[in-house]
């Protein structure tokens, strides 16, 4: 946005009741930053309790790293497919946007399925959140991330319906952009999870 142009047309902006440019996007960015602080607190909790096994199983004994690598791949691929959806949106192609969005959703669902399988396996071998402070912290941190992905999936399906009904209207473009920030942000959090929890946990 050119400053001088904005200044010259300032009165027009008011007269047409124009939204501040990027208002929603910046607000959503601030939400993501506050969400980041929630995860900071959860990571700190996990870090503090990372040796508190209470005589129970450790992460190193139970983590299945190939499975985690698969999950990481799902999430990383879903990031690039969301990027492709955004590129299709920029070119004004509704069909392409919806296809890439649907692929992103399937990868997100695959991620969740693997994560739920992992959780059920941990519960099955007696490493539930009630076993020790370590597993409480583990399930809270990884579960909160998984909950975010679940909400992202619901949002994604909602947007698919919106796109089907209304097409690439400015409102939907804005929503797609907010979800893209949310989705990429979750991938950034997952970098912290697989490094801090799984990889370092496996070495402990």
């Amino acid at each position: 946005m050119s400053q001088s142009v904005a200044a010259n047309t300032n009165l027009n902006f008011i007269a047409r009741d124009h939204h501040a440019p990027n208002g929603t996007l910046f607000g959503f960015w601030l939400y993501l930053m506050s969400d980041c602080l929630i995860f900071a607190a959860l990571f700190a909790t996990y870090g503090v309790l990372s040796q508190s096994y209470a005589g129970g199983p450790t992460g190193a004994e139970l983590f299945d790293l190939p499975l985690v690598a698969l999950n990481t791949a799902f999430l990383l691929f879903s990031s690039i497919t969301y990027g492709f959806a955004m590129l299709q949106m920029q070119q004004g192609k509704r069909q392409g946007t919806m296809i890439w969005l649907a692929i992103t959703g399937l990868l997100g669902a695959a991620f969740l399925a693997v994560e739920l399988y992992e959780f059920s396996h941990l519960l099955h071998v007696g490493a539930g959140p009630q076993r020790s402070a370590y597993w409480s912290a583990f399930f809270t941190l990884v579960g909160t991330h998984g909950l975010h992905v679940t909400i992202g999936l619901i949002w994604l399906v909602t947007l698919l319906v919106q796109l089907k009904k209304h097409g690439l209207i400015p409102e939907n473009r804005r929503r797609l952009f907010c979800l893209s920030m949310f989705w990429h942000f979750l991938d950034v959090i997952w970098i912290g999870v697989f490094t801090f929890v799984y990889l370092m946990g496996s070495m402990a």
């Binding site: 946005m1 440019p21 990027n22 996007l25 990383l76 990031s79 690039i80 990027g83 492709f84 955004m86 590129l87 920029q90 400015p170 473009r173 804005r174 952009f177």
Partner: peptide
């Protein structure tokens, strides 16, 4: 109305993806 969102490019996403891998 697209000017208020950052412009993304195919090469940018691919570079980011390959680096991430």
């Amino acid at each position: 109305h697209q000017d208020d969102t950052p412009h993304a490019s195919f090469s940018g996403y691919m570079i980011g993806f390959l680096l991430s891998v």
